[in-house]
Amino acid sequence: MFSIFKKSAAPDAKASAPQDPGAPITTVTVTVNGRTVTAEVDPRMLLSQFLRDSLQLTGTHVGCDTSQCGACVVHLDGRAVKSCTTLTLACDGGSVTTIEGLSQDGTLHPMQEAFRNNHGLQCGFCTPGMIMSAVDIVNRKGNTLDEATVRAELEGNICRCTGYHNIVAAVREGAANMTGVKQAAE
């Protein structure tokens, strides 16, 4: 267990002080990728900001700020959430898995491998959220997914590069290869 207190971690103490002198600092304890983190956060802090700015887990991206594009998808207690519209405080006591925590012991998760194998990414920006959503789809829908199901289930993830053709192929292959694979710690 380690702690992150923004006051000591930030280069300037002012940087982490609450802006409104009356605003509370609240302590939150979250397990992120298997490590338990206790931190003081501004109540307004979003989970995406906590992951990116406080924990330097920059694999989680923010593309739209409105829960539409899905670049920010992580797993909270085993379910996909959009971290750009999840308050960090709401995750207190919870367990978060990000793209950085998906591969185990240096081995790529089958869904990561499937995205590479099917050229399911181009610029890579939507990819972490796409992969986290894809794993969630398999967790909910099983390992045998038809094309229509994958396309419908990807409603909350936008990709501007690939036209989805190869993403759909990647999700289906990843789903098939997830059979019997122990899921990331969640």
């Binding site: 280069p11 300037d12 990116r52 700015d53 887990l57 920059t58 694999g59 989680t60 991206h61 923010v62 990000t98 793209i99 950085e100 998906l102 591969s103 790529l108 990561q112 995205f115 590479r116 194998n117 050229h119 990414l121 890579g124 920006f125 990819t127 972490p128 992969i131």
Partner: peptide
């Protein structure tokens, strides 16, 4: 050929401009 750049993108290790923070920023 499978893309060589994919390894960093599928593991969350891409480095985009907003991922960069400079001291005293």
């Amino acid at each position: 050929v499978k893309r060589r750049e994919d390894q960093r993108f599928i593991t969350g290790n891409g480095r985009y401009t907003d991922d960069i923070n400079r001291p005293g920023q």
